[in-house]
Amino acid sequence: MENGTQVRERLYADDPRQVGPYELYGRLGDGRMGALFRGRSDEGREVALRVVHRVFATDPFFRQKLAREAAVLRRVAGPQLAPLADARIDGDPLWIASDYLHGPSLAEALGRHGPWPEETVRSLGVSLAQGLVVLHDSGLAHRDLTPKNVILTEDGPQLVDFGLAGLFDAGSRSAFGVPMGTLPFLPPELLRGGSDPHPAGDVFALGALLVHAAGGSPFGADTSAAVLHRVLNERPALSPLADPALREVIEACLAKDAAHRPTLRELHTVLASAGRLTQRRLPEKVAELVLARRPRTPPPRTAPVPAAELERLAALRHRYEQVITSGHSEEAPRAMIELGALEAAAGNISAAASWLEHAVATGHPLHAPLAQEQLLRLPGGRHRRR
């Protein structure tokens, strides 16, 4: 989803005005799965909502796959991930929604303000690698990692649209014979056919994305046929990367053989000295663009939290996120509830609701009802039931 983009145009005459609990008020774009809208619930929750094209919605096999993917996506949680927020998979129309992210996509930021310094590219790689680790540990691959699916927010970069490419057969191909996806971010094994999407494909896409952020184009940017040939047969062009260690690991990410690519943790080790991408690490003009997209009306906040308490909360968030990443059936939902309580105490009601909703979605017999109870107590009407 082009989650962080601004509304491109008004609703068409035949577009729905209301989908589920969400009023739609503008188009964000269109894609192979369906039209993407920006919507808002009565409680003020903003979403990027995709209404599935009828050609897919009438296919029983597609509906079964959507139900399976949605069940997994509801349980994915991590600080660099914008997971599924809501969905209707058993009616007409079919639709899926994620929380609307206020920020430009990486594609928009690069298009407006040009390449990033190498150290900022490293920080971007650290953050995205961490998000992909959580995703892969949950049993998913992104499958469509491109600059348009990275949203830059005040809290750091967020991955959107992950896992949705799995709703389409790996064999679905365009007029060029290329699988559904975006060149040059598609790995060679998918271009050759006979291979299912795999986490190693995300490593390839991440390598290509980081070269792109640095101002390069590892396999060119001319015709699709020419780019396809280079992805399959030629070494990548890495001229924007000056640091030898960075060039070496990115070239390994772009290896033709998936078995020769580094793991995400190995890539993270090379990049880690730069730290996560934060707003202050962004190029100045990009940071201004991110700030310009912040919501005009801030979420409700409780009394100000002292600086020492904020530092304690940051440390606790980090600890709980490590527990959540482990995926332990008992500890993860408990940590989600505790993290939700911490965010609520800090006045971050949207973040609190998100963690509590994840805890509800686990379906744990003890923790899910407790999380639902805490959701009902949040201010601002954030008490949506799944």
Rank of each mutant, 00 (worst) to 15 (best):
A71C: 04
A57M: 11
V290M: 10
L186W: 06
H268C: 09
R54A: 10
E189C: 03
V270C: 11
V305W: 11
A351E: 14
V19K: 06
L210E: 12
R296V: 13
D42E: 14
P369V: 08
A141G: 11
A346R: 09
K256C: 07
Y100P: 00
K148P: 08
A165E: 07
E284R: 14
V360R: 14
L271S: 15
Q374Y: 08
A352R: 00
H142N: 09
G29F: 02
W116N: 07
S41G: 01
A346M: 05
S172D: 14
H53Q: 04
R334Q: 05
M33D: 12
P295R: 06
P379E: 06
R27E: 13
A332C: 05
R301W: 02
V203Q: 11
H212K: 14
E311F: 07
R281P: 06
V55T: 11
V76D: 12
A141C: 08
P188G: 11
E46T: 01
P184K: 12
R45T: 06
D155Y: 03
L128A: 00
G363T: 14
A303H: 14
R334W: 00
D169H: 11
E266W: 05
S123H: 03
H198L: 09
S354P: 00
R63N: 01
L310A: 10
L164I: 10
G380T: 04
R384C: 06
L375N: 02
P179L: 10
T223V: 02
A205G: 04
R281Q: 07
R75Q: 13
G181N: 10
L24Q: 09
S326H: 10
G163I: 01
P333Q: 13
D202E: 03
Q80E: 12
L238D: 09
G201Y: 00
G216V: 05
H136P: 04
